[in-house]
Design a protein around this nucleic acid. Structure first.
Length: 216
DNA sequence: TTCCAGGCGC
DNA sequence: GCGCCAGGAA
């Protein structure tokens, strides 16, 4: 019997404490971070965020008005900067046209509806859409990533199924508690970068006693 | 499943 | 040079 998701959360919290994940002054800043950190370290995405801030471009209106070449330079540190500049443009245009430049207005709409619309945008797939919903808007939309599959696989969950299936499993287990869902995704990332790497570093792992894949 | 896209640190 | 990095699209 594999460790429960609730117990997994408790064990990771005990080990790593509050992950204080995704700092950001506004929902828009969080959403921009979600796009910039795709296949890029948060460290490098953060540099781009600072560039956008200090140049006064970190708002939907300012990004729509920003020339593409300039935007590309501002987000260069995040890698894939040509695509990401386009993605930021498209997302900003969406916020401007559908929500009058104010992401707070997204909060008046149902989660599933928002998710479908986000998925229509170029460069926003399920992970990014759920990151925006969870961390920018506080919706109960768990973020499933490669680390999630790796960790749960090693913990004995077997074949996990497709993205939405895994997401539903976490949402049920955590009873849609947004704080728990936010923390657990963050803690999974932290733990997998630290210990449950591609080649695992099992000695000293906090999950040792509940992990059937441990190597001694 | 496979291809794609780049900066950064070592 | 080489591997890593909070994925998306075909």
């Amino acid at each position: 019997m594999a460790v429960t998701i609730v117990r997994l959360l408790a064990m990771l919290r005990h080990e790593y404490g509050d992950p204080h994940w995704w700092p950001g002054d506004t929902p828009f800043e969080v959403a921009v971070g979600a796009i910039l950190t795709q296949r890029a370290s948060w460290r490098n995405a953060e540099i781009s965020i600072q560039n956008l801030k200090s140049s006064g471009r970190l708002s939907p209106g300012a990004l729509v008005a920003c020339p593409v070449a300039e935007l590309e330079e501002l987000v260069r540190s995040s890698g894939f900067f040509r695509q990401k500049a386009r993605y930021l443009k498209a997302f900003s245009e969406f916020v401007v046209s559908a929500f009058d430049e104010d992401m707070e207005r997204m909060k008046t709409r149902p989660t599933e509806e928002l998710r479908d619309e986000l998925l229509e945008l170029p460069g926003i797939g399920r992970e990014t859409a759920d990151s925006i919903l969870l961390y920018a808007l506080g919706r109960a939309s768990f973020v499933v990533d490669a680390y999630t599959y790796r960790l749960m696989g090693r913990l004995g969950y077997g074949q996990l199924g497709d993205y939405e299936t895994v997401q539903a499993m976490f949402r049920r287990s955590l009873r849609s508690r947004v704080k728990d869902m936010s923390d657990l995704h963050a803690l999974i990332v932290i733990h997998c970068k630290d210990k449950c790497r591609r080649i695992p570093d099992c000695p000293g792992c906090v999950l040792d006693r509940v992990c059937p894949s441990k190597r001694k």
